[in-house]
Each structure stands twice: as C-alpha cells, then as structure tokens.
Design a protein around this nucleic acid. Sequence first.
DNA 1: ATGAAAGCGCTAACAA
DNA 2: TTGTTAGCGCTTTCAT
Lengths: 350, 350
Amino acid sequence: MASEASVRPSAEPRQRARLVDVAERAGVTKSVVSRLMNDDTTLRIRPETRERVLAIAAELGYRPNATARALSVSRTRAFALLIPDLSNSVYAAITRGAFRRARDHGYVLLIAEDGAGDDDDASYAELVTAGRVDGLLVASSRPDHPLVERLLTDRRGVAHVFFNREVPGSNRNVRLDMRGASALVVDYLHSWGHERIGMVTGPLDLVPAQRRLEGFQVRMGELGLDSGAYAAGAFNESGGCEAAHELFDSRPELTALYASTFPQAIGVMKAVRDRGLRVPDDISLIGYDDLPMADFLDPPLTTLAMPLAALGAAAVDALVDQIDGRPAESRQLDGGYEIVVRRSVGAPSR
Amino acid sequence: MASEASVRPSAEPRQRARLVDVAERAGVTKSVVSRLMNDDTTLRIRPETRERVLAIAAELGYRPNATARALSVSRTRAFALLIPDLSNSVYAAITRGAFRRARDHGYVLLIAEDGAGDDDDASYAELVTAGRVDGLLVASSRPDHPLVERLLTDRRGVAHVFFNREVPGSNRNVRLDMRGASALVVDYLHSWGHERIGMVTGPLDLVPAQRRLEGFQVRMGELGLDSGAYAAGAFNESGGCEAAHELFDSRPELTALYASTFPQAIGVMKAVRDRGLRVPDDISLIGYDDLPMADFLDPPLTTLAMPLAALGAAAVDALVDQIDGRPAESRQLDGGYEIVVRRSVGAPSR
DNA sequence: ATGAAAGCGCTAACAA
DNA sequence: TTGTTAGCGCTTTCAT
C-alpha cells in the first residue's frame, strides 16, 4: 500500500503542479522537495526517496514558480537590457549574446528601449524600483542621460553595467578594445599602401567616438602619418555622408576613409557617388562593424567585425558577478575583432 | 501630537518602503492603503485619510513590489515577445510599438529570440511554465515551429497571439493587410506605365510570402496584366539576388520588380548590377518595408512603408483583450501603409 | 533523514 | 470607514 504505480488524475489536471503537489504525492514535505530541487548540499536524503521525488516531479512536469521563488529569495533572476535604438542592428547582435549568456546563468532579459527619452524615469521605476529585475544592462549612449546620474548616486546600489560605451565616473564599464580595433584598420589600409587616410568618426562627446578616433590617430602617428584628417558626424547614414563631404572638401588628397559605424559607411558611399568618385578606384573605404548586407553593397564593403555577441555576454557576466557579491570592476575584452575583406579597399589611386 | 511634519528617518533609509510601512506611518492598515493605491472603487475612505496616506506614500517613494503583487494575483503583468531574428530591423519597429503599448497597459515585455531553435522548448518552459509571463507575442515565421503546435494544443490555454505571420489553424492572428499593400505597389508601378512587372517573393510555405504574392497577382489580374512572373527566394539579400537572377533569365521582358522585403530589394539591386543593368533606367524597383537606409542606396530605394509599430501595438492589444477575458479573434489592420517615393522607380525602358 | 513553521509583500474577502 | 485574516508558492531555519 505504499506508492501505487503512477496513478494519473485524469479528472482534474490541475493547472500546474506545485511544490506541495509533488511533496504530497511523494509522501514527504515541501521542504525536502525544495531542497532537493535546489541541490541543497546539506540535505541528507535516502537515495530511494530522492528517486521517488524526482520521478514524481518529472511525471507531474513540475516547474518551480518563478514569481513565488522571487518573492521568497528577493531575487527575480531577470535583468533589464536598456537600449537606445532597437533598430540599430549592432544592438541586435549584442542582445543576442547577452540573451544567451543570461539564460546560461538562469536569468531572463527584459528589454527596454530608453533612448526616446519619453519617460526613461518611468521605466526605471517600473523595472528597478518595482523590483522586476535584479540588475540593469545599460547600452545607452548619452553622457548626460538621467539614468546614469541616478545609477551612480542611488545609494541602494542597484547592480548595473554600462556597455558599448563608457561612463567616465563608473567602475562598471564593459567594453571592447575599440582603440586596438581602429589601429587594426589603419594597419590594414596601410598594408595596401595608403598613407593619406581620413576618418569619419562620431559625435566627440561620446566616448566610443573618442576611442575609435584615438586608436586611429595613435596608430597613424606611430606610422609617421598625418592623423589630422577626420570629421565627426552622427552615427548614422546622413552623419557619415556629411562628414565625408566635409573631408572631401578639406582634404582632397585622401586615398582612404575609415567610417566608425556601418551606417556611416553607407553614407560615405553616397558622398563618394555625389562627388562622382568611385570606391575603391578613387577612394578606399572600410567600415566599423560587420553586417550581412555588406556583401550586397556596391562594391561589397570591407569591414571591421567586432565581437558584439561576446560583448553582450561579457556584460551579463559582469552583472552576475556583481550580484553574486564580487567587487565591481570595469572590463575590457581584448581582441576578437577582425577585418572582413571584401571589395571596398584597393590600392591608392596615385 | 498627531502627524509631525514629515520627519525623515535619516538613520536607516530602509531599502524600499513597503505597503506596511506607509500604512503604519499613516496609522491605517495595509488593506486600506492597498485598496487606495489600486483605485478600488468600493473603498469608502475619508478624504483626509486618503490625502494623508497618499502624502506618506509619496514621501516614502512607495512603489508596490511587482513580484509580491504577481504572486498574490497570479498575474505577472509581463509578456514575452518571441522573435525569430533580432537583427531584422523589421522586428525592431514592431518591438518598439509593442513595447510602448504594453507599457500603456501596465505590462513589461520580456524578449526572446527563438528562431535559432537551440532550445525553444527551454525558453517556453522558462517563460510560460515558470509563470514569468502572462502571455506570448509570437512573431515566429515557421509553420512547423514546435511552439506553435504546443500553443494550439496546450489545454492550459496560454494566452497568445501570432503576428507578422499567420498560423492557419489559429484564431489569434494579428496581421497587416499585406494583400492590399501589394496591390498598392502594383498600382503605383502601373501608374508609371509598367505592365510587365515581376515579383520577388519569399518562401511559399510561409503565409506572409503567400499573401504578398496573392495581393500582387490579384491586382495584376484585375489590371489585365500577366501575373505569372514571380520567383521565390529567402527573405534576405541573397534570396532576393537569386530570385531576381531567376526572373531575369526567364522573363527578360520585365520592366519593374517588386521585392517582398527590404533586404531582398538590396539583393535585387545587386542582381541588376550583375547583369550590367541599371535602376531605374533599365528596371524599376520597389521594396516592401521602409528603412532609413533607403535614402542612401544607389539609387535611393522607393519603398512600401508598413505600419509596423501599429502592428506591434495591435498585437499587444489583442493579447491584453484575451487576458481580460474577451474572446480571442484574429484581427487585421487595414491601411496604414504607403509608398515612399524615392528614385528607384521610373518610366518603363521601352 | 525528514517535518514544522515562519516569512517574502501584496491582495481580497469578510468583519466590525 | 477601517481592520483582520487568509492565502499566493516558494525558501529556509530549526526541530525532531
């Protein structure tokens, strides 16, 4: 009269099996099941009991209720990913990496686009203050973002990391080696014989724009080349187009251009056409970040592929570390980038 | 000795004010505060008490704990948004619309990319079975997706909607009028004098590909034109490129092409170049979906802009309706699309 | 090796 | 007009 072989209650297939359901069926208490499911090492349990409980849990398809657990342990196992612009493919790659790594750590990702600024505050409140998430992954890009101020000063010490950009006062930045990547671009162009190279960078109040420019300038300097040919534009197509025109006006001698984002590179290509020039015959071009579309441009665009998924994953790792009590520290992922050779770079025209 | 003007406890700024904290400070019980905060209309409360409670709540910066509330009411006020490919900009626009509307309804969005198929099942379990979300917004695109089967049969009746694609057996589809949109494209091309128009559509086992093709063919038929010139390719650049080549081979007489996605249009442009032809001189081109980049292509691409944010919002509305107990029903958003005129469409070459 | 019980913060009957 | 009470499903300490 012990355990009758799996009697399934076909009458009332209760919504979802709870801890107490499997406990009862197994003839033990919640506490045992809970500790068993959570791999509590201090739990001393008879092998046969363990098997029985596990079998019943499996049979019932038991899954712990995340909400109840969260309330109990005061941890939601959810992070919020704050992104300034969802339509930017770069964030898609980062998000994918973050998403996967988060899942490996047992976390889910809540996504929020916060650039529009409609009401960032409301979303901060909704997510953090309402306790929906355990931490924030911030991929914002404005140095004056209200959220940044808030995170830096909030004495409750909300776990967070800034990534794909740095916040100067913070020790929670996770970044790629943009300087090294820019240097690689210069080297590649130089290997083709280019010496008069110009750069289309982003708004100089943004750290990523600065970094890429620095990497460019330092390497140019090391090669004994003029590092003064650059122009700043918005990180989008029109920014690239305008900056390129600016460079063509001021530096007609340039034989190669380095655009600091993919959309900017598209804008540069348009500027080149506007001038009646051709890539790479008249001017070589390379763009930061790689997208599948690069193959289909005219000419196919040579790019610098950055390890974006790895960045997302690293950001998650850093956040998990913070939550697990390890001291916060800024991190940089070295390497992982490479030139994807296509047709937009050739020998200098002269 | 009643309420001393806001005495702030600077010593121990408790992590976060709870319901009971504001209740105690206000000299009432949780129940009153709870009902007040939730706008319980059956609550009879003295105006002065109400003011006092509200004031204290504000002073303490009280925000209800979402987890506790969720456990109590068995509703998380979160939805999961399942997307096959995060890097597809189309989903970014949809997501943005969904995200905003969800917030208006008091919901947050959990995002998950489920196309890779690594382990969709795990994510379904993690999100739905673990009770993390109240419903699913599914933007997947495979008719044979395991998730679909599961949603359709799961007798627990998980709230969900399918959008940006239809699931034949379901009464929970939310869609745009792709047929009408395709018809508009035909009309536009026809207004320029094109009569031999070809279409690059998507994999024909996908409903969206079928719909767009149907709209094209029906309108062509209505205009008395040959509707047989179409080729199917993947919904990306290379699919567009290959399909276009196929059409150029079989239908050299075509003067205009309609590509069923933006990336396909980019692929078509490449195919046109491969053939030594030019847009729009030799062949006019129009692409489904509009992206900022269209302005920077060569030539700037004329597109069909679809109301993607509205679609996302409508999907959320439908899901909220389900949750609120209204009967599920498929919906279609009529109109909202328009041709964005740029330079890729011109008069027929002959 | 297992059980009992308190508690996470909130909601919702039901009392008073 | 406001208070009491019993959960929601889980974790965790302390008994046994």
